[in-house]
Design a protein around this nucleic acid. Structure first.
Length: 801
RNA sequence: GCCGGAGUGGCGGAAUGGCAGACGCAGUGGACUCAAAAUCCACCGGUAGCGAUAUCGUACGGGUUCAAGUCCCGUCUCCGGCACCA
């Protein structure tokens, strides 16, 4: 047999699949369906890297298996092509972002095809295409219509390098998600989507979907629901009520001061009656200068100023307490005001120590002279609450008192904020809104969609953070759709996350011109049965897209309220040095080189074999050689091929066991052990010295999802048939059991002997055999046998003293 | 600080509470070769021993159990997420 020529074989089958539309999903809606989704790539100029291959290989294996199991499989791919890197390349090379995008998509497509992924190439999506972004704008307008879009002037996360406003999600850790510069705070009028309105449903929806526990947890934390109470504190000097939010109403008797955010409106309202207003203004100005990062990350000394002229009154104790402003209280969470209980909250404790405020213990159990006690315990110094030791009970009782007094109510808060939905850049979906002096914000009529991006000479954003579109008079100046008077167009574009918030719907019916997808197609294909992607998209893309989907569900436009039935995530591929792959580290593995040197099958096999699919694993230049050897040895089986259309006696059980293992492991995404099992089988075959046609066909089928090219080729050579038209192989449980089973014999838990017995032998005879063993006899000699343990088909343990 | 996850040979990693180290890589010895590569065969956790074998061994300290990498308690380290969220 000649050496395996992967280059020609891979090219041959890729051409065959393409010409025969082998992997295109059928429109026959009577068949059982499987919708497998992978996160579509951002087509960057660097091309794909091996991480992409791992990300897609998981569902690739499952999709190929599903097809052989008789499913109508939708396994689509597309490109999430709007975004900054493309625009920056366009600016640098002085060409249109359209050209950059097309160039990069072509590069990606070529690479994906070379790896032999079984994507449905007839349904490719490009989010920057008119036929697509028209519907992105359409959904936005629906949200606008339903009051989920609003504008607000607030302090926003601004990246001075990219010159854009970022959402909280895109500026985690105080760094820009794109360029990693420090984020600064800027006051700006921005667009928001009211995602908080769906907070509770996004949380509840998690109960009925099959996501990795980790994924659910991260989403729960991100939404950050807390239950507590709003409590009104009276102000002594006037009849104002200062409302706070707390999760611990049980500690009300321990309140010794209040803190409000520096921006709290009550200060402006009572400016004139505050004697140290200048000091408060100064403090506020100082805080505004700090970035979000400094304000939250550098938790050091507590700072603040006491308000002279406003005094709070504890609604339960009626005691007078001072009010401070401090930047450890945020205007954006709760009511921007808190009741401080220094004895039982670390932050309040630090503040009280610094400002010399009383600390009153109300829960026993700690030493409040040293630090705040945040644990549970018996209530003390709390009048009617005294003696209660159950936290829940104490909270309930405090709540009912507050409700009776009419100065408190139960409430819920979320950490999640509304979604800042705009960027001041060119390469994004234009926001289809017109500003009219008379009519205010007016939606562009649906029939005028798509609202196209105007042609530009210069894509650079303005220095003041204005969109480059603002410089184009012909775009900006327009007529108001309502009153037909002069009006101006919105010049901001949508953020990168817009296009990916509904792409899985478009795949169901990608060429539809009159709807974003037909109801029939959606009813058949949705929900996505299995969605795999990176952990980094769990809190942004996934929450955003679940929100859009739930909105469309409320309009009756999609059949399910959750888009994804199941979600898994792959681990990163690290560089050979164990560090995250990056160009600056110089540890990036070039995909093209790997395909060139080893072939697509070896690459596919290796990314799944290198470790647990869900965990990060370093690339090993040597490790991939093992997969190469495996593939070559599979090819070599043709040299020891014999006739035979059923399993031989010598290998029957090996095959059944391996098929079972591979079948189960694929479903559990334990690809590494599935491959290991096939390697073991291959070793067994070579030990036997021959393989028949039935056996080799069977091996080709189970290996096909991992290494589709070589298996198609071998299968075609030995049977004359096409493997992809075959069914997935079955195993028979009865052949998975050996004729004799090895039983381990231990004495006092230590291995002493091994016995070969028939399956399901009875206890007495096995123990008798064990005790008859020379080695066992020797060890037990002179001791009393206290206990005999028999685990059927596994082991015997004799306890002797 | 809080919430997750992990810690097993030289390396990547396997092990429904039941033979620790499957499978692969690297390494060592041998075969083939003028030679090398490729391929094939054997060995491949530590200690003692020529050896059969004995003994220790899954981050560390305790515990439960006939039996613990796996379960429980405590400690350390690393990774991921959230972070002055009241």
């Amino acid at each position: 047999m000649d050496r395996y020529d992967y280059k020609s074989v891979e090219a041959k089958w890729q051409k065959y699949w393409d010409e025969n539309h082998t992997f295109e999903a059928s429109d026959d809606y009577s068949k059982k369906k499987f919708y497998g989704l992978v996160e579509f790539p951002y087509p960057s100029g660097h091309g794909m890297h091996v991480g992409h291959i791992k990300a897609y290989s998981g569902l690739e294996v499952i999709s190929r298996k599903r097809r052989m199991e008789g499913y109508n499989v939708l396994f689509p791919i597309g490109f999430d092509a709007y975004g900054l890197p493309t625009e920056n390349t366009a600016i640098k090379e002085k060409i249109h972002p359209r050209i950059v995008t097309d160039r990069n998509i072509e590069k990606f497509t070529g690479q994906l095809r070379k790896v032999g992924f079984s994507f449905d190439w007839s349904r490719v999506i490009d989010t920057t295409e008119e036929g697509y972004y028209k519907w992105t704008q359409w959904i936005f307008l629906k949200m606008f219509e339903k009051g989920l879009v609003f504008r607000d002037k607030t302090s926003v996360n601004y990246c001075p390098s990219c010159k854009v406003v970022l959402s909280n999600e895109d500026s985690q850790g105080g760094k820009c998600d794109v360029c990693h510069s420090d984020i600064v705070q800027k006051t700006k009028e921005v667009w928001y989507l009211r995602i908080t309105e769906y907070a509770d449903r996004l949380l509840q929806g998690l109960e009925k979907v099959d996501y990795l526990p980790n994924v659910k947890l991260q989403q729960q934390n991100w939404i950050g629901k807390s239950t507590g109470a709003f409590v009104d504190f009276s102000i002594k000097e006037n009849d104002e009520k200062l409302r706070i939010y707390t999760t611990r109403p049980d500690t009300l008797y321990g309140v010794t001061f209040m803190v409000i955010a520096p921006e709290h409106p009550i200060i402006q309202k009572y400016r004139d009656s505050i004697s140290n207003i200048q000091a408060l203004d100064d403090y506020k100005a100082e805080c505004a200068k700090k970035s979000e990062f400094e304000r939250t990350q550098l938790v050091k000394d507590k700072t603040g100023v006491k308000i002279e002229g406003l005094t709070g009154i504890n609604p339960i104790t009626k005691k007078e307490i001072p009010i401070y402003i401090s930047d450890y209280v945020m205007m954006g969470y709760g009511t921007g005001a808190i009741m401080a209980v220094p004895a039982h909250d670390g932050r309040d404790y630090d503040f009280a120590k610094k400002f010399g405020i009383d600390i009153i213990e109300v829960i026993k159990g700690g030493d409040i002279s040293k630090e705040a006690y945040t644990g549970d315990g018996e209530m003390v110094n709390s009048d009617v609450l005294n003696g209660i030791s159950n936290k829940k009970e104490a909270i309930e009782k405090a709540l009912s008192i507050l409700e009776e007094l009419g100065c408190g109510e139960r409430g819920v808060q979320y950490k999640m904020k509304d979604w800042a939905f705009n960027r001041q850049r060119y390469w994004g979906e234009p926001i289809p809104i017109v500003h009219c002096e008379k009519c205010g914000m007016v939606a562009v009529p649906y029939e005028e969609l798509p609202l196209r991006l105007p042609e530009l000479e210069n894509f650079e954003p303005g220095t003041d953070g204005e969109s480059p579109l603002a410089k184009i008079d012909s775009f900006v100046n327009c007529k108001c759709p309502k009153c037909k008077g002069d009006a101006k167009r919105e010049t901001d574009t949508m953020p990168q996350w817009a296009g990916s918030s509904w792409y899985f719907l478009r795949y169901c019916d990608p060429k539809n011109k009159s709807e974003f997808a037909s109801q029939k197609a959606l009813e058949y294909w949705m929900p996505v049965d299995w969605y795999n992607g990176g952990m980094e998209h769990v809190t942004r893309h996934m929450i955003y897209s679940r929100f859009w989907h739930k909105f469309l569900y409320d309009l009756g436009l999609v059949p399910t309220d959750e888009p994804y039935a199941k979600r898994t995530a792959q681990g990163l591929i690290l560089g050979p040095d164990g560090e995250k792959m990056s160009k600056t580290r110089g540890n990036v593995i070039d995909l093209n080189d790997v395909v060139e040197d080893f072939g697509a099958d070896v690459l596919r096999l290796y990314v799944l074999f290198m470790g647990d699919y869900e965990k990060a694993a370093p690339w090993s230049v040597n490790g991939i050689k093992g997969c190469k050897r495996f593939i070559d040895r599979v090819w070599g089986l043709q040299d020891i091929l014999t006739d035979g259309d059923e399993y031989s006696d010598k290998l029957r059980s090996n095959f059944h066991k391996t098929i079972k293992k591979v079948t189960d492991d694929i479903e559990a995404m334990k690809f590494n052990t599935a491959i290991a099992a096939m390697m073991t089988l291959l070793n067994d075959i070579y030990a036997v010295g021959s393989i028949n046609k039935a056996e080799l066909s069977s091996l080709c089928i189970m290996l096909n999802p991992f290494a589709p090219h070589i298996t198609e080729e071998i299968y075609n050579i030995i049977t004359g048939k096409i493997l992809n038209e075959q069914e997935w192989i079955e195993y028979d449980e009865k052949f998975c059991v050996d004729e004799t089973i090895e039983i381990v014999v231990q004495v006092n838990g230590k291995l002493k002997a091994k016995l070969n017995v028939a399956p399901d032998s009875d206890k007495d005879s096995v123990i008798a055999m064990a005790l008859a063993d020379e080695k066992v006899k020797e060890t037990v000699d002179g001791k009393n046998i206290i206990k005999q343990i028999y685990v059927p088909n596994k082991l015997v343990n004799i306890v002797a003293k």
